[in-house]
């Protein structure tokens, strides 16, 4: 076959596929969101924004992302540097730390439900220690803080691994000589981390943060498993509009809001962590 045409033949299936199942649906969502009663209008957005649950779910989603992502970033960086200097047992520890990567958000929610539910392990432990007489229903409207904490913990537990993997791979790309050179020039481990690891890790940090932040705005099943209706989030609202209220226009409008926030944050992250051309490893 002609070598000039071959690459195009090879990328054709995936391009076609993405056009049909990625580009086209997004056009449909936009259309759905901006059209009401057969005319171009912002009615769908007005209806969504006007609902009392919208500000709440927007606030919850952003709050959760703000609480979870920084902790995950710190934790992932810590774990990645720890793994980096590990000799024996590195493979085992890495495997254990990356286990949550394979666990669905729903399963993660269920796992933490086992801990926080009324007859769960947290209650059992507190009871065993004599701190409470009878089980407390933590995941109820009386304890909004604990509901938030449970969701936060489940999210941190579940999704730190994805950042960890990206960062470990990124650290692996940094040549050891840089560290040795820095050490020769008298940099302490902490200085080496600040002056070498962090700057050279920027492309990986970018990827990790973009992926993670987008996933944070998509949070859904963990919340459904732990908070139910107590803690409305944007993605959950989309689901509610689509199925319970049978309002596809509104569902599409929220979808666009999520999309907008995601793209906005992606751009900010890419901008803040940009790497000058030629300064890459």
């Amino acid at each position: 076959m002609n070598t000039r045409l071959l690459p195009y033949v090879l990328i054709l299936p995936v391009t076609l596929f993405l056009c049909v199942f990625f580009v086209y649906p997004f056009i449909l969502v936009a259309q759905e969101a901006f059209v009401a009663d057969g005319a171009l209008s912002l009615d769908n957005f007005r209806r969504v924004f006007g609902h009392w649950k919208f500000p709440l779910s927007l606030r919850n989603t952003l709050l959760l992302a703000a609480a979870v992502v920084p902790v995950q970033l710190g934790l992932a960086l810590l774990m990645a540097t720890m793994v980096n200097r590990m000799g024996r047992g590195r493979d085992l520890v890495l495997y254990i730390w990356t286990i949550p990567l394979g666990i669905s958000d729903l399963a993660a929610g269920i796992i933490w439900l086992a801990i926080f539910e009324q007859s769960g392990f947290l209650n059992s432990m507190l009871h065993g220690l004599g701190l409470i007489d009878r089980p407390v229903n933590f995941l109820s409207y009386q304890h909004p803080g604990i509901v938030f904490l449970a969701i936060m913990l489940a999210e941190i537990w579940r999704a730190t691994a994805i950042m960890l993997v990206i960062l470990v791979a990124g650290i692996g790309l940094i040549p050891k000589e840089y560290y040795e050179a820095a050490e020769v020039f008298g940099a302490t481990p902490w200085k080496r981390f600040l002056r070498i690891t962090l700057p050279l890790l920027r492309p990986s940090l970018q990827t990790a943060l973009v992926l993670r932040v987008i996933l944070a705005f998509e949070v859904f099943a963990v919340v459904a498993a732990l908070g139910g209706t107590l803690f409305p989030v944007l993605m959950g609202q989309t689901f509610v509009y689509q199925f319970e209220l049978l309002d596809r226009g509104a569902a599409a409008a929220i979808a666009l809001v999520i999309l907008g926030i995601s793209i906005g944050f992606t751009l900010v992250i890419l901008r803040v962590l940009r790497v000058p051309k030629g300064a890459r490893i």
């Binding site: 990625f22 997004f26 759905e32 992926l211 705005f217 998509e218 999520i258 995601s262 793209i263």
Partner: peptide
């Protein structure tokens, strides 16, 4: 594709 919340695709596709 990674910068988009992909599960949302399911809505129009439905």
């Amino acid at each position: 594709t990674r910068a988009f919340p992909l599960p949302l695709l399911a809505l129009p596709l439905a």
